[in-house]
Write a protein that binds this DNA or RNA. Sequence first.
DNA 1: CTTCAATCTTAACACTGTAAAGATTTTATG
DNA 2: CATAAAATCTTTACAGTGTTAAGATTGAAG
Lengths: 187, 187
Amino acid sequence: MKEKPYHHGDLRNQLIEAGIQLINKDGIKSFSLRKVAAECSVSHTAPYSHFKNIDELIAAMGEHVTEQFMDTLRSSVQGKEGSHEAISLLGQAYIDFFIAHPQYFQFLFYHSGITIDLDNYNSDNYPPFALFRTTAYQMFRSIGLPDEEYSHKLIALWSMVHGIASLLTNNGVRYSGNWRDIFAIKL
Amino acid sequence: MKEKPYHHGDLRNQLIEAGIQLINKDGIKSFSLRKVAAECSVSHTAPYSHFKNIDELIAAMGEHVTEQFMDTLRSSVQGKEGSHEAISLLGQAYIDFFIAHPQYFQFLFYHSGITIDLDNYNSDNYPPFALFRTTAYQMFRSIGLPDEEYSHKLIALWSMVHGIASLLTNNGVRYSGNWRDIFAIKL
DNA sequence: CTTCAATCTTAACACTGTAAAGATTTTATG
DNA sequence: CATAAAATCTTTACAGTGTTAAGATTGAAG
């Protein structure tokens, strides 16, 4: 019902696509509902038939980008699950994704909608972290790390990878070396 | 000349102060030049006598907050320079600062004005990183770390601390443990 | 065919940043 | 001191923003 409207084709999906394209071009700062509507050749209030407000559109765009992100992450460790280098490959893929799409970091984390509870293993709604965690745990087990060190090591690795992505895109950090060497020293 | 105007007292400084207060209250998203002007009981175009545009005001606010940030960081290692725990204290202070001011992370790194070149030791314009680097190097030297490992270890530590601050404030990560335990496992 | 709900447009409102022109006051100049 | 110049602030105006309300158009259901 929401998927196949009548008049314009399927405006909802087209708005999401055009919105993401606009993010990639100019970033979140100059994002505008009216620009997206114009890009779809539609009046500037038409989006309100599909989204309650601009935040809902951005949220839908975010889900779409996150899925794309997850596909990249999954394929980076495909066939190597449980191997020693899996977590290293995953970390590099995490960083590479944001290097390839410089606007996505600011965009994805612009809203604090994401919540990750590190104290509770079953309560995160951020899929990339869930994948990162399971991959890390497999590696910890394979190297015989004591269980009580799992949580500390996981957070250290995760914040380092996420921090590098933040520094490279949100901030203007430049580094010509290989990032994998950086977080590999901790494995 | 810019410091002591005639009419309103010193509007420039008052705009910066009111702006920072507004950031602390509502965050960067709902920040507005006109609100700041109104808070200073002045017409909404008066700021243009002191700042070329809204970005220049925000930049001035950012410098002010960064100075405040630096004071906190410096006092956290005062008298303990060169000690083994200095870098740990500094990292914790770095994180605590953004916990105490949840809006500052998004605010400080909203503009990509900051540039840090990890390949060139003398070309960063982000004072907190300079302090972090010298403190880390002192520690590396004191534990007899080989020189060629300095750069890797520095980046690993720095991105981890910065990443934790990002996760805690920009994103909705919750963790009841002690963060110092996390990045202490790497020293 | 008629009814109804979903979708889209037009019009309007409050808010935003910014530019232009003019008024006011401090500072500099003769 | 008087006058000119510069700095500061106000008023007015304009284009752009998100959002709401009312009405038009169209697809599907009865």
